[in-house]
Amino acid sequence: MAEVDFMSMLHKSTQRNYLSRVNDPEFPKAKAAELAKQFAFDYWDGDRRICYGGYQYLEGRWEKVAFALAKHYQLHPKSKILDVGCGKGYLLYDFLKVMPNAEVYGIDISEYAISNCKPEIRNRLRVGNAIDLPWSDNTFDLVISINTLHNLHVYELDSALREIERVGKQNKYICIESYRNEQEKANLLYWQVTCEAFNTPKEWMWWFKQTNYAGDHSFIFFQ
C-alpha cells in the first residue's frame, strides 16, 4: 500500500469560494446538499452553486490521469479496468485513448450519470452500489475509485473497501476527501455537498487496515 498522487493536478485547477457556497441566498449549503444527494440532474448538470454546474466531457482532461495510471501500474494492452463511482465515464473513455484494446467497466449509483454517459462506452457501464460489486474475485487488473468512497456512510465503508479489494487482482487505487487541520476541515465542511465520511488520513488508514485493503490511495485536501 502506498500514497500515490494522480489527482491533485485536477483538484487544484478549480477555484473555490467556501463562504459563498455556505451563504448563497438561493442555494444555501443545506439546500444545495439536499439536491446534490439525489445524484441526479442537479448534482451533475444543474446550477454550479449546487455542485458541478454542467459536468461535460473536456478533451484531454482525464487522458493525463489515465496515462499516469497506466504507466504507474504497468498495465498490459488488454488490461481489465474497473471504475467504482465512474460518473459519466469520462476517465474510462480516456483510458481507451491510452489503451485502445483495454476492457473498461464502470459502476455508479447515479442512474442520471449512466444515462448521460459517453455513448461510446454505454454498454460498459451499469447502475449499482460500491458495497456490492457484481463481478467475481480477482477479475480486474486495475480497480480505481475516485472521489466516491467519502460519500458513503460509515456503515457502508467496510463493505465497499472489501469489495474493491476482492474484485481486483493486485492494483487498486482510491482517492478520497480528507483533512489534516481545522482549516481544511472547515473548508471541507463548507464546500462538500455529498460527503458523509469525514476522516483524517490517519482515520482512513485505520479503515484500510480494518478491511484488509492493500491497494494505493491519495487524499484531496481543501486548503
Rank of each mutant, 00 (worst) to 15 (best):
K78V: 05
L35R: 03
S145L: 11
C175S: 14
I174V: 15
N129G: 01
Q38A: 11
Y155F: 12
D216W: 06
P25Y: 12
S20Y: 08
L75H: 03
I81F: 13
V104M: 09
L133W: 08
E26Y: 06
A160V: 10
A36V: 02
I220Y: 09
K118Q: 13
K78I: 01
K31S: 02
V167W: 15
G53R: 01
I131K: 12
I174K: 02
R166K: 09
L149D: 08
D45M: 04
I109A: 09
D47F: 04
E103P: 00
Y105N: 10
C51K: 08
F140C: 14
E34K: 08
S178N: 10
A130C: 03
I50G: 04
P77C: 11
T200N: 05
R49Y: 13
Y93Q: 00
P28G: 14
I121N: 03
R49D: 08
A186C: 11
G53T: 08
Y112R: 03
L161R: 00
A66T: 03
N138K: 11
Q38V: 04
S159R: 12
K29R: 14
N187C: 13
V84H: 05
Y155T: 05
W206M: 03
E163G: 02
A32Y: 05
S20T: 12
K185N: 15
A36M: 01
D216A: 11
Q15A: 13
L149S: 07
E34C: 02
D108V: 03
E103Q: 13
W44R: 00
S110L: 10
G168A: 15
E165N: 09
M9Y: 11
G53E: 09
R166C: 06
D24K: 01
E177K: 04
C195R: 01
D141T: 08
I131T: 15
F140Y: 13
P134Q: 14
N212D: 14
G60V: 03
G89E: 07
K64H: 09
